[in-house]
């Protein structure tokens, strides 16, 4: 799941200041689960913006809408009929959603209300944790299904670094040391020898750094 957090209100406020008719658009998928951009957050932000404007003696018209998914054309299309009524769209989608909406309506100003943060897991109610970097070359089978790229502060492939204390990462003492977990898990399974090999330098070319990645599946295309 993609996680995100709402931008500081101050930043959003400045962003939307020039516009008097605003459509706040949420996304019902990932960002709804991490309580950043679902229907409820849309309502809250819209209400907050209305009040803020009122306090500054401005009148703004703010409408709300939440799409099932903001990164797919078919869902974005639900905005087509009404989009011209607004000066700008404030999107509570992830970065992908914001851009997708903007691509569908290139003449519309689309503003991001969220900071997209990471790919992660819902650890407990209200706790989300990064566990994947989308590196494009998954090696979890070697590391006992714990990703050293995403979960070790230094991304070591031949860890641990030696700085961890009480099984905690030296960088974030509230985070468990990924390498500690890898070793414990493999040890339990009697497969520690999996780590004996020196893991060679990684081919990062499957990850970021070459411009936007793209997946094309002939069989899925119409």
């Amino acid at each position: 799941m993609i996680t995100a957090e709402r931008k500081p209100f101050e930043e959003i406020k400045e962003m939307v200041k020039p516009y008097s008719k605003l459509l706040v658009v949420g996304c019902g998928t990932c960002v709804a689960e991490c309580a950043a951009g679902g229907e409820k957050e849309v309502a809250l932000l819209a209400s907050a913006l209305r009040m803020e404007a009122r306090m500054e003696n401005r009148v703004v018209e703010i409408d709300e809408m939440t799409l099932d998914r903001q990164c797919v054309y078919e869902f974005i299309d639900q905005l087509t009929e009404t989009v011209d009524n607004y000066d700008a769209i404030l999107s509570l989608g992830c970065g992908a959603g914001v851009q997708a909406v903007s691509d569908v309506f290139p003449d519309m100003t689309v503003l991001p209300a969220l900071n997209t943060t990471f790919l992660g897991e819902t650890k407990a109610p209200g706790v989300w944790m990064e566990n994947c970097r989308g590196c494009g070359d998954c090696k979890l089978h070697i590391f006992g299904a714990i990703c050293p790229v995403a979960r070790c502060a230094k991304g070591l492939f031949n860890g641990p670094c030696g700085g961890s204390k009480d099984k905690r990462c030296e960088v974030h003492p509230d985070t468990p040391c990924a390498w500690h977990m890898i070793i414990e898990r493999l040890e339990k399974k009697g497969r520690l020898e999996q780590l004996n090999n020196i893991y060679p330098p990684v081919d990062w070319s499957t990850g970021q750094g070459k411009g936007p990645r793209k997946i094309e599946r002939e069989d899925q295309m119409i």
């Binding site: 230094k154 991304g155 060679p200 990684v202």
Partner: peptide
């Protein structure tokens, strides 16, 4: 930005 393109053991081996 922490680079960590390779790690220390990979460096030794390099």
């Amino acid at each position: 930005k922490g680079v960590f393109d390779i790690d220390s053991i990979q460096l030794i081996h390099t």
